[in-house]
Amino acid sequence: MYAPQEDTELLAAALADEPLAPGAAVLDVGTGSGALALTAARRGARVTAVDVSRRAVYAARLNALRAGLPLEVVRGNLFEPVRGRSFDLVLANPPYVPAPGAHRPPRGAARAWDAGGDGRLVLDRICHEAPGLLRPGGVLLLVQSALSDPGLTVDCLRSAGLKSAVTQRQRIAFGPVLRTRVEWLRERGLLSPDENDEELVVVRAEQPV
Rank of each mutant, 00 (worst) to 15 (best):
G108S: 03
T167H: 13
D124Q: 08
D114F: 12
R158D: 11
H103I: 10
S164R: 02
L147F: 14
E129Q: 08
G137K: 00
A146V: 15
N93H: 06
D114E: 09
R135T: 14
R135D: 07
G138L: 14
R107K: 07
L123M: 11
L141F: 04
V154E: 00
A110D: 04
V154F: 02
R120P: 00
S86P: 08
G119Q: 01
Y96N: 12
A146I: 13
P100D: 01
L141Q: 08
P106C: 10
P131D: 09
Q144F: 01
V122R: 03
D88C: 02
L123A: 11
L152N: 03
I126Y: 06
G119D: 02
P100A: 08
N93Q: 01
S159V: 12
A115F: 00
G138Q: 09
V122M: 15
C127Y: 03
F87Y: 13
R120I: 00
L133N: 02
L141S: 13
R125V: 09
V97H: 03
A92S: 13
A109H: 05
R158L: 12
E129H: 00
A110Y: 06
A146K: 07
D88M: 04
V90W: 05
V97E: 04
P81C: 10
S159I: 10
A115D: 07
G119M: 06
L133W: 05
R85P: 13
R125C: 04
S86I: 13
D114R: 10
G84Y: 07
R83D: 01
R111L: 10
A102H: 02
L134Q: 05
G84V: 06
W113M: 05
G138A: 15
V154R: 01
A110P: 06
R85M: 15
S86N: 08
G116D: 09
G108F: 09
R135L: 10
P105V: 12
A146C: 15
G101C: 10
L142T: 10
L123Y: 06
R83V: 12
P136W: 01
V166N: 01
W113K: 04
D124Y: 05
D155V: 12
G84W: 12
A99E: 08
P136Q: 00
R107F: 14
A165Q: 07
R85F: 14
L157H: 03
P100N: 08
R104I: 14
R120W: 01
D124C: 00
R111I: 11
W113N: 03
V97N: 08
V154Q: 04
T167Y: 13
R125A: 06
G101Y: 03
A102L: 08
I126G: 06
A99F: 10
L91G: 07
R104L: 13
P95S: 02
G101D: 11
P150T: 11
V154T: 02
R135F: 14
W113D: 04
K163W: 15
F87D: 03
V166K: 02
L133E: 00
V90L: 06
D155W: 07
R125P: 02
A160P: 11
A102D: 09
G108P: 03
L142D: 10
I126C: 09
L89K: 06
P150L: 15
A146D: 15
L121K: 02
S86L: 14
D114K: 07
S148K: 03
H128R: 13
P98D: 05
G151M: 11
I126L: 05
G108L: 05
A146W: 15
